[in-house]
């Protein structure tokens, strides 16, 4: 019973956090929601007998990675909000929804198809449940890391080197002028994008006004239709090659 309660609470924390990450307007809020999810995950790890991982989860993920995020957000000052009511490319949210739901449905069908979908071979050696001490968990991890996965372990050295080199290469101050970009294309795109955003914003305002004053509907309704039409055509030309 306790087990169920722990799971339910953690699942709620994790999912609320995840939804918060993608729904928050402000990236700082997203980062904080991310921390929430990561903490929930750490608790789940403990209930799955991965004690060391739970600690690592908090230290590395919440402590290092999310802090790095926050650091960059603050450094760049890009903490301004994003208007989430405007869909950037028509149909993108629909596609995103389809991809997400399809993935989830795939897993759901897979996992609920049978009582226990996991068909892998249970390991005779190194059973996790024998002596549940943290030291044992760490020892098992270390042993596997330095035997079966020693090559992968060594290979991560290259990965980290690349990350360092890459970060230095990208973040070092550029010498010399920026090269001219094809200005006209850029400007045209920007104008189109700006126009689209304006149109949507205007439409939303109109909608709001409409709902506020529900009686006087006829004239604004027409304006609305025009706006929708205009933005619709703009999107079509823009998204044509995507």
């Amino acid at each position: 019973m306790v087990e169920i309660a722990v799971f339910a609470v953690c699942a709620a924390i994790i999912l609320v956090g995840a939804v918060g990450v993608i729904a928050a307007r402000n990236p700082v809020h997203s980062a904080l929601f991310l921390i929430q999810t990561l903490f929930g995950m750490a608790v789940v790890f403990i209930s799955l007998e991965a004690h060391f991982l739970a600690a690592v989860q908090v230290v590395v993920y919440a402590g290092a990675i999310v802090i790095l995020f926050l650091f960059v957000i603050m450094l760049l000052g890009v903490d301004q909000s994003e208007n989430l009511n405007i869909e950037p490319i028509v149909g993108q949210r629909f596609i995103a929804g389809v991809v997400g739901v399809a993935t989830f449905a795939l897993m759901l069908v897979t996992l609920t198809g049978s009582e226990d979908a996991i068909t892998g071979q249970p390991q005779a050696t190194g059973a996790l449940g024998d002596e549940l001490t943290d030291a044992n968990n760490v020892r098992q991890l270390a042993e596997t890391l330095f035997t079966d996965y020693v090559f992968a372990f060594e290979a991560t050295a290259i990965l980290l080197t690349i990350a360092v080199v890459g970060a230095v290469v990208l973040a070092k101050r550029t010498q010399g002028e920026m090269l001219p970009t094809p200005r006209n294309t850029l400007e045209i795109r920007e104008e189109a994008y700006q126009a689209r955003i304006d149109a949507r914003a205007a439409q939303l305002e109109a909608n709001a006004a409409e709902s506020a004053a529900a009686d006087s509907a006829s004239s604004t309704g027409e304006a609305d239709a025009d706006l929708v039409e205009a933005s619709g055509t703009g999107d079509e030309t823009d998204g044509g090659d995507a």
């Binding site: 290979a155 991560t156 290259i158 690349i162 550029t174 010399g176 090269l179």
Partner: peptide, 22 residues
């Protein structure tokens, strides 16, 4: 791991021309 080593380096390489927005 191999895939990530390959890819992350290429992400950086693609953005290598730091004076060019594209």
């Amino acid at each position: 791991i191999g895939l990530e080593i390959l890819s992350i380096a290429v992400y950086v390489l693609a953005a290598m021309h730091t004076r060019k927005l594209e």
